[in-house]
Write a protein that binds this DNA or RNA. Structure first.
Length: 477
RNA sequence: CGGGGUGUAGCGCAGCUGGUAGCGCACCGCGUUUGGGACGCGGGGGUCGGCGGUUCAAGUCCGCCCACCCCGACCA
């Protein structure tokens, strides 16, 4: 519960975000540095997102499993780029049961290595392929600078790990999972994305190619909210994952990995929220409707409660919360529901009882607008339509915002200007030092190289050398 | 890891030149309230971030440490 206002979203985005996460009771700071507590309301949101993803993973043939949190340190050292990428961020266990361990164990920063070890053991024949396993777990990366949901030392996610007989299959898998992430983000979270390939400097440590979905937050900065990696044969060679093909020849597998984390919750907050608080998309909201009963005296209480009960019966197909907390005024509950981002509020008071109506208020319309009086009869139909409309309008609003702040600068001068408050889609020569210079000069980095390129060729927006692809540039979280 | 800032009740803060801790909100009880953040009365709650030092006496002065936040370099 809260009663103070949030900082202004437009004036102090960062502070607005921090306080909203706490006040909406999504998460809290843990007593351990860099870690977060995900509170029930935040976890309910994650569970809904999990369900949306898991359904799609299963539909595409994946199965879930559990792997240990502790990994022999030597495993991390097997793949050269992987070590370099993750060493600085590892937490290492050196003592167990009071004894110094023979070999230190690392708390998993990601599971490619232990997966590689086990896949090598399990895969013998082309008949064993593909292996399509997903893990729902948490991982630990020693982060210096943290922010709830966006970057914490421990975070919750899913990591998918697959092994295939051919490169083409592995690439198809990598792109299939990227598509699933994009589809979940857009249809469930109502967050538009740009799918693309990561630059060499931004790709996953050990990957051959990394792909990401990138979204524009309310302050125009970009957030990578899902990644899918084609690992080539890098991990297969490091862990000796081989199979015997139809011609009785030993072949290395082609592997992939892909992950999406609770960071997506941060995206939901930053894309849809406003000065009043969260605005949650109906498909993921823990509660889609909050019912606020209103009665001035004992005589009204009974009929109102009866109407609420009747209405609740009609809405069993929705996630409904009846806010019958005592001693709180309706006004307080309105604000509380808005802060928590409940998509639809239903007020049931004496006037509604007298008229056989309820009052609906949609969260995505400002203030007291978006309120409407509807008959209790056939209510569920109107509720369903409104929730659909809210889901759609949140996406459209976010997409319009993203488009409005995405530019195609022709010159570097223009580029420098636009990346201060938006995204730039601009030709890039593909050279790492060019990218590094741009970052130095503007703080913008390549987010990805969008997959749907209009084609053609041009000159690098920074150095003027020939360029074959356009990159999406932005300041990022 | 560099620069800056903050640690006093759950949250936000006050506490002067040292004298034994307070305000608002939240919380508990009773009553009146309830269609946009109600009000009255009465309560409970503190190793003042930690350790050490100076002093008759430290929230206050000194030293060291720790944590968190903001801005930069690195990362989902």
């Amino acid at each position: 519960m809260s009663e103070e206002r949030l900082p202004s979203r437009s004036e102090n985005f960062s502070e607005w975000y921090n306080q909203l996460v706490l006040k909406a009771e999504l998460a809290d700071y843990a007593p351990v540095r860099g870690c977060m507590i995900v509170r029930p309301y935040g976890w309910a949101l994650w569970e809904n997102l999990q369900a949306a993803l898991d359904r799609r993973f299963k539909a595409t043939g994946h199965v879930n499993a559990a792997f240990p949190m502790l990994i022999p340190k030597s495993f991390l050292e097997r793949e050269k780029e992987h070590v370099e990428g993750f060493s600085p961020q590892l937490a290492v266990v050196t003592i167990g049961g009071g004894e110094v361990l023979e070999e230190p164990l690392v708390v998993r920063p990601t599971s490619e290595t232990i997966i590689g070890h086990m896949y090598a053991k399990w895969i013998k024949s082309y008949r064993d392929l593909p292996v399509l396993i997903n893990l729902w777990n948490s991982v630990l990366r020693w982060e210096i600078r943290t922010k709830l949901f966006l970057r914490t030392s421990e975070f919750y996610w899913q990591e998918g790990h697959t092994a295939h007989a051919t490169e083409a299959e592995a690439i198809a898998e990598t792109l299939q999972m990227l598509d699933i992430y994009a589809e979940v983000s857009e249809t469930e979270a109502a967050i538009p994305v740009v799918k693309g390939r990561k630059s060499e400097s931004e790709k996953f440590a050990g990957a051959r190619e990394s792909y990401s979905i990138e979204s524009m937050m309310g302050d125009t900065r970009a957030l990578q909210s899902g990644t899918s990696h084609h690992l080539g044969q890098n991990f297969a060679r490091a862990f000796d994952i081989r199979y015997l093909d139809r011609d009785n020849q030993q072949q290395f597998c082609w592997t992939t990995s892909w992950g999406l984390s609770t960071r997506m919750i941060g995206a939901l907050i930053m894309v849809h929220g406003d000065d009043q608080g969260l605005i949650l998309p109906p498909r993921l909201a823990p509660y889609q409707i909050v019912v606020v009963p209103i009665s001035r005296d004992e005589a009204e209480r009974g009929p109102v409660a009866e109407a609420v009960g009747r209405v609740a019966q009609q809405l069993t197909g929705f996630r409904v919360r009846i806010d019958d907390r005592e001693g709180l005024t309706p006004g307080f509950k309105f604000n509380d529901g808005e802060m928590r981002g409940v998509p639809l509020r239903m007020e049931v008071g004496p006037k509604d009882v007298a008229q056989g109506t309820v009052t609906l208020a949609r969260r995505d319309r400002p203030g007291r607008q978006g309120k409407e009086s509807v008959p209790q009869e056939g209510l569920e139909r109107r509720v369903a339509d409104l929730l659909d409309d809210i889901q759609r309008s949140l996406f459209e609003r976010a997409l319009a915002f993203q488009k409005e702040h995405t530019h195609e600068p022709a010159t570097y001068e223009e580029f420098k200007e636009v990346v201060q408050g938006g995204w730039a889609l601009a030709w890039w020569c593909g050279e790492a030092e060019c990218e590094a210079q741009v970052k130095e000069e503007t703080k913008a980095t390549t987010r990805n190289i969008p997959l749907d390129q209009p084609g053609g060729s041009g000159v690098c927006v920074h150095c003027g050398r020939p360029a074959r692809e356009r990159a999406l540039w932005s300041r990022a979280y």
